Computed example of a mutant assay.
Amino acid sequence: MTTQILLAGVTGLVGGDVLRQRLADREWNGRVLAPVRRTLPISEARVAAIVAALADRAADGELYAQVSDRLAGAALDVYISCLGTTIKTAGSREAFIAVDRELVLRLAKLSFDLGARRAILVSSVGASRQSGNFYLRVKGEVEDALADIGFERLDILQPGLLLGARNERRPGEAVMQALAPATNVLMLGNKLRRYRAVEALDVARAIVVLSERSEPGKFVHEHDAILALSEELKVPASAR
């Protein structure tokens, strides 16, 4: 049976690695449907770019129509959201919410309506709707709202700082990445280890492993769990 995945954020740091890691398994006969603003520079039968104006603040119905029209007849199995931006990149808090909360949830609802019963979300360590930090509060709101949609299995990854080369410039993050090896060493004990920086590739590998799991429930994965899942990808699928 062919597994169909809706992968949001495929042009980003983690999403791009998810796509590459998933396609690296030549025996995987599934299909990745990727909502994007422009055609992907990839020629692969297992990937379909769903080109739509995803960056604007379109009304729910308008956005739903754009993507759902292009997904007509699709039967989805898994929704994966690697969407994420910053307030500085987005330009305002409202624009940040439009992507990091509204778009994530619109595509989640669309995926559910098209049959997906499993969802995987890249969130952030410390995410909570009770947080005094705006960024973490929005992430927490997304986690809670996603859990209410009705997915039978929901995996939430809460990594710390993501390490890797982005397509966009984030000077502040670049400085933090350079300091990460030193700061990681200082983060000892269970309470601090969860805040350690992690390679985006490890997060992507963890997502690929989770995309093959169907046990029902809600699961939250922090730093150490993400690394453990990443290691599993090195084990043949038949042995997992």
Rank of each mutant, 00 (worst) to 15 (best):
R170H: 11
D144V: 10
P171L: 10
A108N: 05
T85V: 08
A74C: 11
R106Q: 13
R166W: 04
E222L: 03
F134H: 00
L161M: 11
L146T: 07
P181W: 11
E168H: 14
A206W: 03
V208D: 00
F134A: 00
R205M: 04
D202S: 07
S238R: 14
S124E: 00
L154T: 06
R70I: 03
G12E: 02
V10E: 06
E94G: 12
L233I: 14
L23R: 11
N29G: 12
R193V: 07
R196F: 09
S238N: 13
A178M: 14
L110Y: 03
R137V: 04
L13Y: 08
L40D: 02
L19P: 01
D148G: 09
L201P: 00
A145L: 12
A8K: 05
G73Q: 13
L121T: 02
R194S: 07
A174H: 11
Y135F: 14
I149K: 09
G15W: 02
L227E: 04
A49L: 10
V51W: 09
V122Y: 03
L33P: 03
E152C: 07
Y135Q: 00
H223W: 13
E27M: 12
F134T: 00
L54Q: 06
R22W: 15
G73K: 12
A127D: 03
A200H: 01
R166E: 06
V47L: 15
M187F: 15
F151R: 06
D148V: 11
